[in-house]
Design a protein around this nucleic acid. Structure first.
Lengths: 207, 207
DNA sequence: CTATAATGCGAGCTTTCGCTCATCTTTGAC
DNA sequence: GTCAAAGATGAGCGAAAGCTCGCATTATAG
């Protein structure tokens, strides 16, 4: 689908200037989220989003050049939320405590809207990530890298790999928990903490 | 899509009896895999699969009641391969060595067809898993549970949670690595081993 | 060799979906 | 109050996708 993706580059649309229009844009993005949560990717059609948002299909296309842009805007909104929380970790002096803040942010993000988090993780990975998302994702990795470099945490010889792996471990546990419908925040945090800390302080062949 | 999903239950199709028909079915399943790998979920259409398999669309629908059944058959085929390899682990006497065999099977499965493994992981999770897949998935968890109960591995107070988390950790690291295009088998194994072993021998609040 | 079952074919029906555009309504600056 | 710009509408176009069905071809039993 995405019919105008060939030919002219998806041209920029109107910017919402008046408050009324900003409400409209916000309603459309939130409708995208709710459709994805309830109907999944199959039910995600532009007409369904417009109806759920309470606007006409024409209005939707005044602000979003195509269906993919809806996903892009939603991903940008959600990851910005997560990164904003994660940002708080860098201000914490103790290394382990800072890591806890980061993990807490990730867990909270997952618990808040589990189905959405899972789905967007996947959609994000199969979308040519534009400048915005590239930047946000890089920011999260930068925060994690700075935490893992703290002197009161186990030193990581290969920092880049450690960042990738820790991020993957967190996401893996949280997505699986979300799929199972887990909602126990503290229990989840303990398990993520255990996995991350275990990875950081272990050398590959210990037994 | 999936147009006949309402009304009568997707009726069973012909079973391939002659060798010729078995070749056809195999070709269709493999075509599904290749389409998913190269075009992704968007390019996954029944017409595309039939063309890639070198059979007509009518032939395809003689053996698969609908599009979803193609995915189901492919998932069954791939997970059966993984479980067969994992099964070898239970025969190994040493606990750590057995765990190594299991991790090796998972890594090999990921390295063999990275894009496919990632995609099917996700598709599987959003599909009402039928009896077959339920059984195969359960078998993998059973193997993992039996390994984690070995006396020469750290005892797990909550075995069920440990099984879920270890599986999620393995899948998380492997999917992320596949997304980045990693192909170094031994390096990947070391990292997965590190994460799993670290989790197993760590209690939640160690620092 | 013949009859019957199994397999294979593909034009095309039906439905859905992304998206446009001509038109109408609302807002706000002067 | 006027008018231009911003915002909103929704019928419907064109394309594509899932799937059927009548028929042709190939294998096998007797």
């Amino acid at each position: 689908m995405i019919q105008n993706s060939v030919g002219q580059r998806a041209r920029a649309r109107k910017q919402p200037l008046q408050p009324r229009a900003q409400k409209t844009v916000e309603a459309v993005i939130e409708a995208t989220a709710r459709i994805l949560e309830t109907q999944g990717h199959d039910g995600f059609t532009t007409n369904a989003v417009a109806e759920r948002a309470g606007v006409s299909i024409g209005t939707l296309y005044q602000y979003f050049p195509n269906k993919e842009a809806l996903l892009g805007a939603l991903i940008a909104r959600e990851t910005a939320l997560l990164v904003a929380d994660a940002e708080l970790a860098v201000a914490v002096t103790s290394g382990p405590a800072a890591l806890d803040v980061l993990i807490g942010a990730a867990v909270a993000h997952q618990i808040r809207r589990p189905a959405l988090a899972r789905l967007l993780d996947f959609e994000e990975s199969r979308m040519p990530l534009d400048a915005d998302r590239q930047r946000v994702r890089g920011r999260f990795q930068a925060i994690l890298a700075s935490l893992l470099s703290r002197p009161d945490l186990p030193p990581q010889p290969d920092l880049h790999t450690a960042v990738m792996d820790v991020a993957a471990i967190i996401q893996g546990i949280l997505d699986a928990a979300g799929e199972r419908g887990e909602t126990a925040r503290e229990a989840l945090m303990e398990r993520v903490r255990r996995a991350v800390v275990g990875y950081l302080q272990t050398s590959p062949r210990p037994f």
